[in-house]
Nucleic acid binder design. Sequence first.
DNA 1: TTTAGCACTCAGTTTATCAGAGTGCTAAAA
DNA 2: TTTTAGCACTCTGATAAACTGAGTGCTAAA
Lengths: 338, 338
Amino acid sequence: MELTERSAQVLREIVDMYTRTGQPVGSKSLAETLPMSLSPASIRNVMAELEAQGLLMSPHTSAGRIPTEQGFRFYARGLVEVGELNGRLKAELEQRIARAPTFDAAMQEVSRTLAHLSSCAGLVLAPRYDDARLQQMEFIRLGPDKALAVLVADNGKLENRMIAVPPSLSDSELRAAADDLNRVVRGKTLAEAREHVVAALRQQKLALDSLMDKFLMAPDATDTALMVGGSQNLFGYPELVRERLQSLFEVFEEKRLLIGLLDRVRQSDGIQVFIGAECPLEAARDCAMITATYGTADKKVVGTLGVIGPMRMNYRQSIALVDYTARLLGRVLDERLS
Amino acid sequence: MELTERSAQVLREIVDMYTRTGQPVGSKSLAETLPMSLSPASIRNVMAELEAQGLLMSPHTSAGRIPTEQGFRFYARGLVEVGELNGRLKAELEQRIARAPTFDAAMQEVSRTLAHLSSCAGLVLAPRYDDARLQQMEFIRLGPDKALAVLVADNGKLENRMIAVPPSLSDSELRAAADDLNRVVRGKTLAEAREHVVAALRQQKLALDSLMDKFLMAPDATDTALMVGGSQNLFGYPELVRERLQSLFEVFEEKRLLIGLLDRVRQSDGIQVFIGAECPLEAARDCAMITATYGTADKKVVGTLGVIGPMRMNYRQSIALVDYTARLLGRVLDERLS
DNA sequence: TTTAGCACTCAGTTTATCAGAGTGCTAAAA
DNA sequence: TTTTAGCACTCTGATAAACTGAGTGCTAAA
């Protein structure tokens, strides 16, 4: 679809105004704010064209126009020029991240800051270390009949599992067992390593009662993999009615859906903008979502972050924000892993 | 305040009906549901008395009556007979908790189940181990220049901190340092132990760059101390208007306030019911909150759990639920620690 | 002490009216 | 050919008036 420069400018202005106010935009107010000098009548002609092209619609005869879903898409993909993020915002972002003592805390902070700066809900999916390799494992004896197994991956991630050991096993025997295991297990993935340890413990007849078994076999918590921050911001948009909000909050609590979705995004690189029905999330059918992947410089470890908000979000700023934040968090991740 | 048996029954029925429907209760419909046979006119007399006593109010002349805040209190404290929890609910509760592989997961599950079974939001504050003592500490060398410090408390809690070590330090020297430290540090609280370890590392001239410093000094994450589950249930109550919901969700995200509040509850034993203005939380001024402490049999380790919902909540069931859940989670905690 | 009867009150709904914003169309102006 | 002024038209949202019905309080009888 091709638009004359003037049509484009009108569409741009309508989206901008509607984004700010949430109200339909009429030809008269548009004539006042448009940089070019045009009468309301001429603007109406342009608007009629844009409506015929499916980019605008009027809620009713005597209201102004609002962008259609397509209109938003056209705007977000072609019309909006994404600039540098405002320096003040950059500063705030970096400052907030710097305060976080752990990467988890940083993710939390990022999700909230994304939300704060975009007036949307902020999302951060933890990076996945598919290729994380076991670097070291160790048993720490805690008592005559129990010990702690610590698995350390080369990305710095840890896993602790409490296990039962027979009191007859001496400290040095336990240490020897660990040394043996280490030789076998080093360089394997965490999952493989876990299997091995369990097998070895069985073989060596170290008792594993059912409780310990449960500990050992538990997969990593998936619930902490996704941080949702500032979801209350969505209350600020009257067009998001109660039931919409409710279903969004359900998705935010029962994180599985969102995790799956963001995980798929993780496959493809760079910024993605989902508008309306494109959004692969039932509850966000009339919302918009901006996502980006972040990761280490070598792109071997990747996560996803983004914002989710009303369709009339400030695309210019939000896109810049998500983009910048992704690069920033990538750098932080790099630092942590080195 | 004393009530005749009849007045009490009328109040009880009004609260019950209002709790179910959210609508004012009139004398006619009351006459139909009340077990005793009374004409609407007589009931009106009783209602007038109850209104004079400040237990009921009418939103306007031609509406039925609704309980006042005091009315709810009177009901919840004196009139409601809290029975055993329904067997089906008990079963569901136990089943859900049993699935949880870790105590954190159990807390999460409990918060959601509380919410689910009460149609409110569920809260679980993690137990605090003020008197947790260090049982063991260990260094695990991860590379020439870094190691992992693992602190194990006698309650099974762990803390891991990454530290930098000079490459010149041999493995056996590191182990000797750990042995030395263990002698000093065993039996201290985690906080004290952390101090000691840092001091010792400094003294032994183990390099601590600023990042490592930050790791070491970071207090435990407080954000994971509180689990809020099923907060979307609150959308189901029309009387909780948008702004109310918004401020509640703000409290749920920025957990500090709630943590502080529940922490104070932790001081006193048993079930507590906060109704309306009693609720020490600004955002919950016209809500109700039921809390209970849970803990090990010796009551040395205690946490708090509860539900928060509209004032017209089902007190009978919710009180029984919170009570039962607290005892159940206490048992789970006991098992984990033993 | 309880209840039937009745007048009264008031929220909520419906209907009518009106002002205002915005449009589309046509014809004149640039 | 493009732009603009003018005008009739449409539709929402606000305001007011009328109506309905649920529920009450009071009085007098059972």
